[in-house]
């Protein structure tokens, strides 16, 4: 039984990193495909499209920081806490990354027609980034209570 609990603890430590990486990969690929499509139709502003498609890459950074914060000796006493915080923050980061990629793709699709709305079109992606930051910050705060 102890082995299973310890395994869950290690899973919790690495989950934010792994799920954050998956989130960034999926999000960046969604937004990246949108920017490639938009580049075939527009005459300029390619740098902006590529820049926007890198937005979801922050999720893996948050995941790495959470992983380092959770990283400690895993004991039967702290494994449950590590598992809970790690898995749930990882899932939150994953959703944020994927949907931020979709929001970025929509922004790219809209701004290829109307470049003047570039800033406003990024607002949904920025709001999703805020939710990712919430998941990140409060994972750090809560992890301070784990022995």
């Amino acid at each position: 039984m102890n082995e299973l609990v310890l395994t869950l603890g290690w899973l919790g430590i690495y989950a934010p990193m792994a799920l954050g990486a998956a989130a960034s990969a999926i999000g960046c690929s969604i937004a990246g495909m949108a920017s490639i499509g938009a580049m075939t139709e527009t005459e300029g502003g390619y740098g902006r499209f590529v820049g926007v498609s890198a937005f979801p890459s922050t999720m893996v950074i948050y995941g790495i920081v959470i992983m380092f914060t959770l990283n400690r000796d895993v004991t039967p006493e702290n494994a449950g806490g590590l598992f809970g915080i790690g898995i749930l923050s990882g899932i939150a980061l994953m959703y944020c990354g994927i949907w931020q990629g979709r929001a970025c793709a929509a922004a790219i699709n809209a701004t290829k027609e109307k470049p003047e709305i570039f800033g406003l079109a990024l607002a949904p992606a920025a709001i999703i980034e805020g939710f990712g930051v919430f998941a990140f910050v409060f994972a750090l705060v809560i992890s301070a209570g784990i022995s």
Partner: peptide, 10 residues
């Protein structure tokens, strides 16, 4: 998300 690039190229 199947046709992101195609849709953005239209």
């Amino acid at each position: 998300d199947a046709y992101i690039a195609l849709m953005c190229s239209l």
